[in-house]
Design a protein around this nucleic acid. Structure first.
Lengths: 218, 218
DNA sequence: TAGATTGTTAATCGATTAACAATC
DNA sequence: TAGATTGTTAATCGATTAACAATC
């Protein structure tokens, strides 16, 4: 184990490893070599060995990797062997998607409460999760352990929410507003920028035409 | 204008530039230097100048960049000055979020049709968009210009959908299933892996503890 | 033992940052 | 003109790929 912080590209690949290893496990495959896994995942064997060696020596020379062992290792690395508690703020369609997402629960995540400002929604229950008035958020956070807050409100509401979250024990914000949030360093912000994602796709499918247009004008 | 393909990191930053430039424009700022913009966006001035020079010379020495001009340039680069037509497959909460997302419409995107397999949903209308039987997808794609298909179905349904999409004129897939989709090279796949995103967040907030645990065991 | 495959060191590639001449 | 700031070339940094000794 090295002590330096793990590099971003490696972190980004971990969930993907987890998915592929899970599939292999489901198919009762026992072992896999870095080159077989590389072929499956469209990576190089070198990269896989480099990535894994960030965390330790999990392979066996001449044999490869035990899938079950590697799967459990990655699972643990991702913190999925302990329950992570999530509060959802904003119960619009996006908030509902999260609360109803079936695969979160059996992967170490648990929704503990939902919040909204809409009187119609407050007091209702979604998938077994209560919807509270967002005004009660600070009090709730001070009396309950919440690891992650998912923010699915309009972006104007977010700045004030971050302020309230910042004085709690929350360690992560899952940001669905389409704007960067400024949070203290102790809180990690993971962004899901749907509009950015769609624009990237738009760029990619138009790349040739767009760049041609551009050169003409120059 | 260089002719080589634009690098991935640059493409990823374009929507973010677009957001910040839009905000500046809304605040009636006329001009900005690379170092001011860098400060605002938490980048380096060097990087901004490098990024922009991928596409042309938009700045003026001693002055900086005209925000309006730069904004329009990025907008055009992202293909937002022409309408991009999107069909949504799967009208669960996630599909609903997309169809109701207010900011897509005034940004050059248009939903043309929604599809689902649920008899209850077929024939209904969401935000003015009809929901058709997914069985009619191939026919619809053959008679209508659709640029992007957003897939929000369970992942088991996706493989078959991709096959059908592959024989159409669709150029991009916006993939919300939590699995990699194999599509022909002519179709660009942009992934939104919500579970991966949450797992990354989980890793980050637990990084210290997790890595400590790991070193103990070794 | 022979063959396979790891973990790691070295080489390469690509992206970011720094420096500076060109020029508004 | 003097000051500011670009676009670009060069230097640095970091990530990926290749190579190979160690070893199951």
């Amino acid at each position: 184990m090295k002590d330096k912080a793990v590099s971003k590209p490696v972190i980004s690949r971990l969930p993907r490893y987890y998915r592929y290893l899970g599939d292999l496990l489901d198919n009762d495959v026992q072992r896999i070599s870095s080159s077989e896994l590389a072929k499956l995942m469209n990576l190089t064997a070198s990269q896989i060995r480099q990535d894994l060696s960030t965390f330790g020596n999990f392979g066996v020379q001449g044999y490869g990797y035990s899938i079950e062992h590697l799967y459990n290792t990655v699972k643990e690395l991702l913190g999925l062997d302990t329950m992570t508690k999530i509060a959802v703020i904003g119960v619009g369609n996006l908030g509902l998607s999260l609360l109803n997402y079936p695969s979160f629960l059996n992967r170490g995540f648990e929704f503990v409460m939902a919040f909204d400002s809409d009187k119609e929604k407050i007091g209702t229950e979604i998938n077994g999760i209560m919807v509270k008035d967002v005004a009660e958020l600070p009090l709730f956070l001070s009396y309950n352990d919440v690891d992650i807050v998912a923010i699915t409100t309009p972006k104007d509401a977010a700045k004030d929410l971050v302020k309230k979250i910042s004085v709690s024990n929350v360690r992560g914000i899952w940001n669905f507003t389409n704007s960067d949030l400024e949070a203290p360093a102790k809180i990690y912000v993971e962004n899901v920028f749907l509009t950015d994602s769609l624009m990237k796709l738009s760029f990619q499918i138009n790349q040739k035409e767009i760049l041609e247009n551009f050169s003409k004008k120059k």
